[in-house]
Computed example of a mutant assay.
Amino acid sequence: MRRLATTLGILGATLTLAVALPASAQAATGDLSLNGEHFTNPSGCLKIADNGNPIAVIRNYTDAGVIAFSGEDCTGSIVKLVNPGATEPLVGAKSVYVPE
């Protein structure tokens, strides 16, 4: 039952993020930092550099929500949804997707 609640929560959060994101054809505006690696106006799937620590840090100073995934190339399970302006630890994330 707990697993079902977790899955439904993640699905609900994903749906909320998908509806809340603007349907534009341009990259997010602003800066994104993944374990100290900086991206300006990022878009698409970005790999999180392996620094030997299972916990990555994301600083999302863009105008778009970012989805963190457990696998490389934005595959696997959703680890966390990171809202614009947030700084979050990411446990077990290997890639993030920034809506294009």
Score class of each variant (00 low, 15 high):
Asn51Ser: 10
Gln26Cys: 01
Asn51Lys: 14
Val19Gln: 08
Pro22Ser: 07
Ala49Asp: 12
Gly30Thr: 08
Asp50Trp: 05
Thr40His: 11
Ser43Gly: 07
Lys47Trp: 05
Leu21Met: 12
Leu21Glu: 12
Asn41Glu: 00
Ser24Ala: 00
Ser43Trp: 06
Leu17Ser: 04
Thr16Phe: 11
Ser43Ile: 00
Pro42Trp: 04
Gly36Gln: 07
Gln26Gly: 13
Gly52Cys: 14
His38Leu: 08
His38Glu: 07
Asp31Cys: 02
Leu34Gly: 10
Thr14Gly: 15
Asn35Val: 03
Pro22Asp: 04
Lys47Phe: 07
Ala20Met: 06
Leu21Trp: 10
Gly44Pro: 10
Ala18Asp: 09
Ser43Gln: 12
Ala18Val: 15
Glu37Val: 15
Asn41Met: 01
Leu32Tyr: 08
Gly44Trp: 07
Ser33Tyr: 02
Ser33Pro: 03
Asn35Asp: 13
Thr40Met: 08
Ile48Asp: 07
Ala25Ser: 13
Ala25Tyr: 10
Ser24Lys: 08
Gly52Glu: 04
Thr40Trp: 04
Gly30Ile: 03
Gln26Thr: 10
Leu34Tyr: 07
Gly44Ser: 09
Glu37Thr: 15
Gly30Tyr: 00
Asp31Ala: 01
Glu37Tyr: 08
Ala25Thr: 04
Gly30Phe: 06
Ala20Phe: 08
Cys45Gly: 11
Asn41Tyr: 05
Leu17Pro: 00
Ala28Tyr: 11
Gly30Arg: 02
Leu17His: 06
Gly36His: 03
Ala27Arg: 02
Ser33Gly: 00
Asn35Arg: 01
Leu21Thr: 13
Leu46Asp: 12
Leu15Asn: 01
Cys45Ala: 06
Asn51Gly: 15
Ala27Tyr: 01
Leu17Phe: 14
Ala28Asp: 09
Pro22Cys: 01
Cys45Phe: 00
Leu15Asp: 00
Pro42Thr: 03
Ala23Val: 14
Gln26Ser: 10
Ile48Glu: 14
Gly52His: 07
Ser24Val: 00
Thr40Ala: 11
Leu15Ser: 11
Asn35Ala: 03
Phe39Val: 12
His38Pro: 02
Ala20His: 04
